[in-house]
């Protein structure tokens, strides 16, 4: 399992960018359905937080402060999107 993760680690940026790009494409295709847009971005945020956890664990740079930055960036996105879309 760890070997697979280490292999994936090489492509970490492609993974997060690929997911973000696919979400961006989907979000721009459902502009009249804000609830769907919100759910799509929530799934991206869930992926982003999981990615951060795995990336920094493999990178041996996982710390509370690092994760706090990811969590607060995610929280800011959620709060702003909730206020605008829902």
């Amino acid at each position: 399992m760890k070997k697979v993760l280490l292999q994936l680690h090489r492509y970490n940026f492609f993974i997060i960018f690929g997911f973000a790009l696919a979400t961006m494409f989907a979000v721009l295709n459902v502009t009249t359905l804000p609830q769907v847009q919100f759910l799509l971005i929530m799934s991206l945020i869930f992926f982003y937080l999981s990615w951060a956890l795995i990336y920094h664990f493999l990178d041996k740079s996982l710390s509370l402060e690092v994760m706090l930055e990811y969590i607060l960036t995610a929280l800011l996105s959620i709060v702003v999107l909730y206020g605008v879309l829902l």
């Binding site: 997060i16 960018f17 973000a20 979400t23 961006m24 979000v27 721009l28 847009q37 919100f38 971005i41 991206l44 945020i45 982003y48 960036t73 995610a74 996105s77 702003v80 999107l81 605008v84 879309l85």
Partner: peptide
């Protein structure tokens, strides 16, 4: 990446 997607939706 995440903030850009959120920005596009907004």
């Amino acid at each position: 990446a995440v903030l850009s997607v959120a920005g596009a939706a907004i």
